[in-house]
Amino acid sequence: MSAAPMGDVVTIRLAKENMKFSAAHFTIFNATERERLHGHNFRVEADIEARMLGNGMCFDYGIYKDRIVALCRELNEWTILPTRSPHLRIEEAGEHVYAQFDGQRIPFLRGDVLLLPIENATLEEFAHWFLLRLGEDREALRAHGITAIEVRVFSGPGQSAGRRMGFD
Results as ranks from 00 to 15, higher is better:
124 E>K: 12
99 A>D: 09
71 L>R: 00
123 L>K: 03
67 R>E: 03
66 D>H: 01
36 R>T: 15
40 H>L: 12
26 F>N: 04
70 A>G: 08
120 N>C: 10
68 I>A: 03
30 N>D: 15
116 L>Y: 02
48 I>T: 05
96 H>V: 06
22 S>H: 14
101 F>D: 06
110 R>G: 09
52 M>H: 06
21 F>V: 03
59 F>H: 07
96 H>W: 05
47 D>H: 05
124 E>F: 01
80 I>P: 04
40 H>C: 11
90 I>V: 14
65 K>N: 13
115 L>Y: 02
36 R>N: 13
98 Y>L: 09
54 G>P: 01
89 R>M: 08
27 T>E: 09
108 F>L: 13
128 H>M: 12
42 F>L: 07
114 L>C: 10
97 V>H: 00
41 N>D: 13
30 N>W: 02
75 L>H: 06
109 L>C: 12
95 E>W: 00
105 R>Q: 13
34 R>K: 15
41 N>I: 10
67 R>V: 02
68 I>F: 00
128 H>F: 06
86 P>Y: 05
23 A>N: 04
33 E>D: 15
119 E>A: 12
98 Y>F: 15
99 A>R: 10
33 E>L: 14
51 R>I: 05
21 F>W: 07
106 I>C: 04
54 G>W: 13
72 C>E: 04
95 E>V: 05
43 R>P: 01
25 H>G: 02
87 H>C: 11
34 R>C: 08
51 R>A: 12
62 G>P: 10
55 N>I: 11
120 N>I: 13
20 K>E: 14
56 G>A: 01
122 T>Q: 10
56 G>R: 02
77 E>I: 03
71 L>C: 08
58 C>E: 02
97 V>S: 01
70 A>R: 11
124 E>Q: 14
72 C>G: 03
60 D>H: 09
97 V>A: 00
77 E>K: 06
105 R>C: 05
26 F>M: 06
64 Y>H: 05
110 R>F: 00
48 I>G: 01
58 C>N: 05
29 F>Q: 09
84 R>W: 11
95 E>G: 11
73 R>E: 15
89 R>S: 10
118 I>K: 08
116 L>E: 04
69 V>F: 01
20 K>H: 12
84 R>M: 12
108 F>T: 15
82 P>L: 09
105 R>A: 07
123 L>H: 03
117 P>D: 14
114 L>I: 05
117 P>G: 08
106 I>D: 01
63 I>F: 08
122 T>E: 14
110 R>V: 14
111 G>S: 14
94 G>N: 10
78 W>N: 10
59 F>L: 05
45 E>H: 05
36 R>F: 09
54 G>K: 13
106 I>R: 03
126 F>R: 00
92 E>T: 01
72 C>Q: 04
21 F>M: 07
59 F>T: 03
54 G>I: 07
24 A>Q: 07
73 R>F: 07
96 H>N: 11
100 Q>G: 00
94 G>M: 09
86 P>D: 11
75 L>I: 07
20 K>T: 11
85 S>Q: 11
22 S>F: 14
118 I>P: 06
73 R>N: 14
120 N>Y: 00
67 R>L: 04
55 N>W: 14
